[in-house]
């Protein structure tokens, strides 16, 4: 079986090509060409749903005299983007040896604010203070990008009201809950002139006049007047627009995405080759692949694990973010 997977058709003989058209601290726009749509879509899906990040998963509320309910605040806390630098060395709580959480699988953040003045007080993500041991000084710190340095608004307090709570941030992926998504949005498009007819435009009288051209329309030749439909054509140029919500840099999302695909594959290869010695593929498997010492194979999807979702009814006064207990945690309908 010797053939070069990269050198196939004429169009693909060059191998994949990447061209970046725009990049800054919040987004990267790039074109992937000479690749198949199946791979391009895998990359998109993986960037959307399977890159591990860190988010608040457990909240213990000690004092809450604000007008907002505990679970309401817990939910808001869950959605606060936290810096995911070095999250790869953090364990998933369900893989950790500890009882509930520890410094190897979580980051602790505390919030204590009391309105002592005459005016209403705003409590924002800046007031969440990481405490205890951490992998590095950035992991779990709230992402703050606004010019005032406040971060997202959490709640407001009237004079005399107080909020005191402790948050446990854990590692997870967006397939389990969107709060773990590293990206705010991922744009993905191809074939700006709709030569392949994958889109059926709705129109009043003339679709060309009524639909604005794509931003990438100049990147590809428009179809010649009266050009016959090419039924052999396949999409070959894919335009991504990766926008981060803060946990990772935009190009970090792309490289992490590719890494996640590779870890998936590595895990499967590992499992297949390991089984070769035994009777086909049905030999007993070691459970090692969930927490391989080499780190590279340490990827495991988060569904099915209960470790990440503690019930709020156990701890006195504690409450998780409400989505930690949805009935969906067992099965993933989004696969």
């Amino acid at each position: 079986m010797d053939y070069d997977p990269m050198a196939m058709d004429d169009a693909e003989s060059l191998g994949p090509v990447v061209k970046i058209s725009q990049a800054d601290s919040v987004r990267v726009k790039f074109e992937l060409s000479n690749a198949d749509i199946s791979f391009a879509n895998s990359l998109r899906r993986v960037m959307l749903g399977e890159i591990p990040t860190i988010a608040i998963d457990l909240v213990e509320i000690e004092e809450n005299s604000s007008v907002l309910a505990d679970e309401f605040i817990a939910h808001r806390l869950g959605l606060i983007p936290l810096n995911a630098e070095g999250v790869e060395s953090l364990l998933y709580s369900r893989d950790c040896d500890c009882e509930e959480y520890c410094e190897h699988c979580s980051v602790k953040l505390t919030l204590h604010a009391k309105c002592t003045g005459e005016e209403n007080m705003s409590v924002s993500a800046r007031d969440l203070v990481p405490s205890g041991d951490r992998m590095n000084q950035n992991l779990g710190t709230p992402v703050i990008t606004d010019s005032d340095g406040l971060g997202p608004l959490l709640l407001k307090l009237r004079p005399g009201q107080e909020i005191k709570l402790e948050c446990i941030a854990k590692k997870g992926i967006a397939k389990e809950h969107a709060k773990w998504a590293p990206s705010a949005a991922i744009g993905f498009e191809y074939d700006p002139h709709n030569k392949l007819r994958h889109i059926d435009y709705w129109y009043e009288s003339d679709p060309k006049a009524e639909w604005p051209p794509s931003e990438y329309a100049d990147w590809e030749e428009p179809p010649a007047e009266g050009e016959p439909f090419d039924y052999d054509a396949v999409p070959n140029h894919f335009y991504y627009n990766v926008e981060t919500s803060g946990p990772l840099s935009p190009d970090g999302i792309v490289t992490e995405g590719i890494k996640v695909i590779q870890q998936k594959l590595a895990m499967l290869i590992h499992e297949l080759t390991e089984g070769d010695g035994g009777d086909g593929y049905n030999g007993p498997r070691s459970p090692e692949y969930n927490s391989g010492p080499d780190g590279g194979f340490g990827y495991s999807t988060s569904y099915g694990g209960n470790g990440g979702n503690q019930s709020s009814w156990g701890g006195g006064g504690g409450s998780t973010t409400p989505f930690g207990q949805t009935p969906f945690q067992g099965g993933n309908s989004w696969s």
Partner: peptide
């Protein structure tokens, strides 16, 4: 599986190069 991994490697390299 191995080929797909190689493909990922290439795309990753190309992306870093482009960056």
């Amino acid at each position: 599986l191995a080929d797909l991994q190689d493909l990922c490697d290439v795309v990753n390299d190309k992306f870093l190069e482009a960056r």
